[in-house]
């Protein structure tokens, strides 16, 4: 089954870059420890993002807080447990629980990962890598079709951070992602940190990798910090740790990417060794400066074009 993009019910309503309610601004992950500071300080942020699985509980302060935040800010919900890359069928109960969560909060975006996390009924709580071959591609596409149908919306799929490759892979990661985006009509959540981490870890040219992705289908960007390690050959092995500030190399790649795709909603992910909210907000402001500078730059270019044409 290869439905044409424009025949998918969610394709028209969710054109890349024009998600209703999610502005091309910087947002941050919502942490319970920060909720009070956010409600009191009303920081100027484009949106908040939460991990879906943290909110698959019946009630209590998690939902009370999210409801208050969602009244004031656009919301993005990011799944970490669907196991779209898994060999097993998707968990229908989990999928329906997600549908209920999305119906409840009506987030501007829902995204998931190109990874697996459940097998044989066990949830491994990590984003495990998939081989890039035809059989896996077909399975991931079928899972994406099922997810988008059940959730009734287009989703974004995030490029992974990986530490090993599979000898049996027959496609490059970028070719794999390009084809699944084309076949399913899903969008791309471009995690620039993951791109950098994976390219360093696998000796790839990161600019060539980014250029080979379906950049026109990017609907959100993620930025995060990594941890630096070394492999047994002494080469750098970067760990996608979400526990520090965004690296300068990733900021540079982000600026390079924005120059090609225009301003996009951009999330600062900082999940471990959580800083005070102001420090997190400072990272978001840096992303905002790049986003707004780009907008100013585009206006200038537009003015110039108009002057020339006049």
């Amino acid at each position: 089954m290869n439905p044409r993009r424009d025949s998918l019910p969610w394709a028209a309503a969710n054109t890349p870059g024009t998600h209703p309610g999610l502005p091309p601004r910087a947002g941050v992950g919502l942490k319970p420890a920060h909720v009070q500071a956010i409600l009191e300080g009303a920081p100027d942020l484009g949106f908040f993002e939460v991990h879906a699985e943290n909110y698959l509980v019946a009630g209590g302060p998690m939902h009370a807080d999210l409801a208050r935040i969602a009244k004031r800010y656009p919301l993005s919900i990011h799944g970490v447990g669907l196991s779209i890359g898994g060999a097993d069928p998707l968990d229908p109960d989990h999928l329906h629980a997600l549908r209920g969560l999305l119906d409840c909060y009506q987030p501007a975006l829902f995204s998931e990962h190109l990874a697996w996390s459940t097998h044989g009924g066990v949830f491994w709580n990590d984003l495990l890598p998939v081989p890039y071959d035809r059989a896996t591609l077909n399975r991931v596409c079928a899972h994406l079709d099922q997810v988008q149908e059940t959730l009734g919306r287009r989703i974004l799929l995030e490029n992974p951070a990986t530490y090993v490759e599979f000898a049996d892979s027959t496609l490059s990661e970028a070719a794999f992602i390009t084809e699944l985006v084309a076949r399913t009509g899903c969008g791309l959540l471009l995690d620039v940190n993951n791109a950098y981490v994976s390219c360093i870890n696998h000796g790839r040219d990161v600019l060539a990798y980014l250029a080979a992705l379906p950049l026109a289908q990017v609907g959100e960007v993620h930025l995060a910090g990594f941890h630096r390690d070394t492999d047994s050959s002494g080469d750098p092995l970067l760990i996608d740790s979400h526990g520090s500030a965004v690296d300068e190399a990733v900021w540079s790649l982000y600026a390079w990417t924005l120059a090609r795709i225009g301003p996009q909603p951009t999330l600062i992910e900082w999940d471990n060794d959580l800083p005070v909210f102001d420090r997190l907000h400072a990272e978001a402001r840096r992303a905002d400066r790049l986003l707004m500078g780009l907008e100013a730059g585009l206006e200038t270019a537009g003015d110039t074009a108009r002057r020339i044409s006049a």
Binding site: P131, V164, E165, F166, A167, D168, H202, G203, R204, D231, S232, S233, D235
Partner: peptide, 10 residues
Amino acid sequence: GLSTWNGSDP
């Protein structure tokens, strides 16, 4: 079936 670009230990 794991591989690494530089021959380091998977």
